Amino acid sequence: MKLTSILRLAAGIAFAGLLTISARAEDPLVIHVGYAAIGVDNRPFSEGTSAATARAGEFLEKEFANDPNVKIEWTFFKGAGPAVNEGFANDQLDFAYQGDLPSLIGRATGLKTKYLLASGARKPLYLAVAKDSGIQKIEDLKGRKIALQRGTNGHLAAIKILEAHGLKERDVQVVNLDSAATVAALTSKDIDAAFGDTQLINLAAKGSADVIYTTKGDDPRFGRNAGIIGRQAFIDAHPEITQRVVDAFVKAAQWSSDEPNRAALFELWHKSGTPVPILEEYFSKDTLAYRNSPLIDDLLTSQYAEQAVKSKEFELVRRDIDLQGWFEPKYLNSALQRLGLQKFWQPYGADGKPAAS
């Protein structure tokens, strides 16, 4: 082969290589975001959290609107928190809204994640009973058929409530059902009672069940917590993108916390199919800022620490859960500082009382 031919061939290979590199550089980065719930009739929306606001209000999409090579892809999981863990385990998710128990189980099983900010913290739990069930108080649940969704933050909260009233999980007949199946079973009286939230308020409003208990106004340790969890490998590879994702969630939390937005907020969450009056009841007597705070404060971290201990005590996990290094507040703190929100939310101490900010 002549020297000129060799040079042309080499030049062609080099040019093709440059094209390949350029094409790779222009490949879009898809940010996979999960949500450990799903709307009515499988709508790709939810309610009750700033993460739900971020989805319905397209806060992440707006954050990256001028970045054509960055795409946001949401996935809502009927299987709730346990399904989110599967997504993280298979590297199919980069970030997700997830409740305390499943995220702790993920931590116990070795998932490499970070807790980035709170979303849906301090959520109340409700207990509804079938019509004519004869159940008037929690103690009456002994031996009865109770629905809850195993592996979710509602599962752990329900066990703690039972324990506080002299019952253990084995004292009731637990039926593992998701929200839609719970509504159907309670309506048909195939079960005697169920733990849940807005779907039970809605059922009671229709006269198809009776709510006999809520954690609202009770011991705050009976409530549920949740947050935005990030896959550590993605965070390490894309710290600047991670910061912008957190920025978007913080902006959603701010908008969700402003009382003048209350009516608009409930209308936005109505995309999930949950009626506005039910959301009004769900948030009655609570300030929006209290329920939508993104802060990783002492109340939140102490609650997660207690949940970790209780998870093993109740045999929901087999090993101790090490929370050292799991909470990663630097992205949240940076967002709060740059957005001028350092004093916007009230931090709470481990005792549930307001702490000095």
Results as ranks from 00 to 15, higher is better:
residue 149 Q to A: 11
residue 54 A to L: 07
residue 97 Y to F: 12
residue 123 K to H: 11
residue 146 I to K: 01
residue 160 K to V: 08
residue 194 A to M: 07
residue 350 A to F: 13
residue 134 G to Y: 06
residue 242 T to Q: 05
residue 274 T to Y: 06
residue 198 T to M: 08
residue 141 L to M: 07
residue 237 A to Q: 13
residue 175 V to K: 06
residue 298 D to I: 01
residue 294 P to W: 11
residue 73 E to Q: 15
residue 73 E to R: 14
residue 91 D to K: 08
residue 220 P to H: 11
residue 277 P to V: 09
residue 104 L to H: 07
residue 28 P to R: 07
residue 106 G to D: 06
residue 43 R to V: 09
residue 11 A to G: 05
residue 319 R to G: 13
residue 295 L to C: 06
residue 10 A to V: 14
residue 73 E to S: 15
residue 307 Q to Y: 15
residue 88 F to I: 03
residue 168 K to A: 14
residue 321 I to E: 06
residue 300 L to Q: 09
residue 137 K to V: 10
residue 134 G to V: 06
residue 335 A to Q: 00
residue 26 E to G: 06
residue 231 R to T: 02
residue 278 I to R: 00
residue 44 P to I: 03
residue 53 T to G: 02
residue 49 T to E: 05
residue 79 G to E: 13
residue 67 D to L: 12
residue 299 L to Y: 15
residue 190 D to M: 13
residue 206 K to S: 14
residue 143 G to K: 07
residue 248 A to Y: 00
residue 276 V to E: 03
residue 148 L to G: 07
residue 338 R to W: 05
residue 44 P to N: 04
residue 151 G to C: 00
residue 300 L to V: 05
residue 170 R to Q: 14
residue 351 D to Y: 10
residue 317 V to F: 06
residue 336 L to P: 00
residue 270 H to I: 04
residue 118 A to M: 12
residue 230 G to S: 01
residue 179 S to G: 04
residue 164 A to W: 10
residue 312 K to W: 04
residue 321 I to V: 13
residue 332 L to F: 04
residue 70 V to F: 08
residue 152 T to Q: 02
residue 221 R to K: 14
residue 104 L to I: 09
residue 15 F to Y: 13
residue 198 T to Q: 12
residue 137 K to Q: 10
residue 36 A to N: 04
residue 242 T to N: 05
residue 174 V to I: 15
residue 73 E to V: 08
residue 211 V to D: 11
residue 286 D to W: 15
residue 31 I to V: 13
residue 19 L to N: 00
residue 64 F to H: 10
residue 139 E to D: 03
residue 160 K to N: 08
residue 203 L to D: 03
residue 114 K to H: 04
residue 20 T to Q: 08
residue 317 V to Q: 09
residue 215 T to Y: 10
residue 335 A to N: 00
residue 61 E to Q: 15
residue 335 A to P: 00
residue 165 H to S: 07
residue 138 I to G: 04
residue 203 L to W: 04
residue 345 W to N: 00
residue 178 D to I: 11
residue 339 L to G: 12
residue 77 F to C: 09
residue 47 E to Y: 15
residue 178 D to E: 13
residue 117 L to G: 00
residue 66 N to K: 13
residue 127 L to P: 08
residue 152 T to W: 01
residue 144 R to M: 08
residue 98 Q to S: 10
residue 151 G to T: 00
residue 38 I to S: 02
residue 353 K to F: 04
residue 204 A to C: 08
residue 251 K to T: 12
residue 288 L to A: 09
residue 227 G to H: 09
residue 203 L to V: 01
residue 9 L to P: 00
residue 80 A to V: 12
residue 299 L to H: 15
residue 207 G to Y: 07
residue 232 Q to T: 12
residue 350 A to Q: 14
residue 356 A to Y: 01
residue 356 A to K: 15
residue 99 G to V: 03
residue 186 L to S: 05
residue 79 G to C: 11
residue 113 T to K: 06
residue 337 Q to M: 09
residue 212 I to W: 07
residue 341 L to Q: 03
residue 31 I to R: 11
residue 46 S to V: 08
residue 195 F to V: 01
residue 193 A to W: 09
residue 57 G to H: 01
residue 242 T to F: 02
residue 181 A to Y: 06
residue 31 I to W: 10
residue 108 A to Q: 11
residue 297 D to K: 04
residue 90 N to E: 12
residue 354 P to Q: 03
residue 148 L to W: 14
residue 325 G to I: 11
residue 189 K to M: 04
residue 317 V to A: 06
residue 173 Q to R: 14
residue 177 L to S: 07
residue 178 D to V: 14
residue 282 Y to R: 12
residue 318 R to G: 15
residue 307 Q to P: 01
residue 303 Q to S: 15
residue 15 F to P: 07
residue 182 T to R: 08
